[in-house]
Simulated scan of single mutants.
Amino acid sequence: MSAADEILDIVDENDQVIGQAPRGEVYARGMRHRAVFVLVRDGEGRIFVHRRTATKLVFPSLYDMFVGGVVGAGESYDGAALREAEEELGVSGLPRPVPLFKFLYDDGGGRSWWSAVYEVRCEVAVDPQVEEVAWYGFLSEEELSRRLGEWAWVPDGVAAWERLRAR
């Protein structure tokens, strides 16, 4: 099964499930769905930053300060956060990511998803999926702030980062 065939829950403005559809259709029709964002810190408190591969369906080749992805049909935000973090980092046995907040991302151009933001500490060596991650590094918050003005970032990640910084 390809990523485009994965079934997602469609949700309303109150994050209530109103249907289901394949990911490819969800993206093509701009249907509201669910996603998780996990801020990963290493043992020194640095943040995992990566550049997405050129083959990603959404935001190819852009940088992101979160790992994560869509929540599958019937999956909980908490379950998706742990699954996505372990998959993207190429690790197992991570502690359960800590939920921080939820917000409705809407780019005003047909892309909208409920976004649950988490944080987790990863103190083991990472081995990111080559299908998902073209480059990665652990950056201090100062270095990340400097790179925000230099690199092309995923807009939903920037929206989540700005909300996190404002807390």
Rank of each mutant, 00 (worst) to 15 (best):
I7L: 12
L8P: 08
D12K: 08
D12E: 10
E13M: 06
D15T: 00
V17E: 06
I18Y: 01
G19L: 12
A21Q: 12
A21R: 12
G24E: 12
Y27T: 06
R29Y: 05
R29F: 03
L39D: 00
R41T: 14
R41Q: 15
D42P: 04
E44H: 14
G45L: 15
V49N: 05
V49Y: 02
T53A: 01
A54R: 09
L57A: 07
V58P: 01
V58L: 10
F59E: 07
F59H: 13
P60Y: 00
S61R: 07
F66C: 02
G68H: 03
V70N: 09
A73K: 03
E75Q: 12
S76H: 00
L82R: 14
R83S: 10
A85N: 05
E88Y: 04
V91R: 06
P97D: 14
P99K: 15
P99C: 15
L100S: 13
Y105N: 12
D107T: 10
S112R: 12
W113P: 02
W114G: 07
W114T: 01
S115A: 13
Y118H: 14
E119R: 11
C122S: 14
V124I: 11
A125Q: 15
V126H: 03
Q129W: 11
V130C: 02
E131I: 02
V133C: 04
A134W: 14
A134H: 12
W135V: 11
Y136C: 10
Y136K: 10
Y136Q: 14
L139A: 02
S140T: 14
E142N: 00
R147H: 05
G149Q: 12
W151Y: 04
W151M: 01
V154Y: 01
A160T: 03
R165S: 00
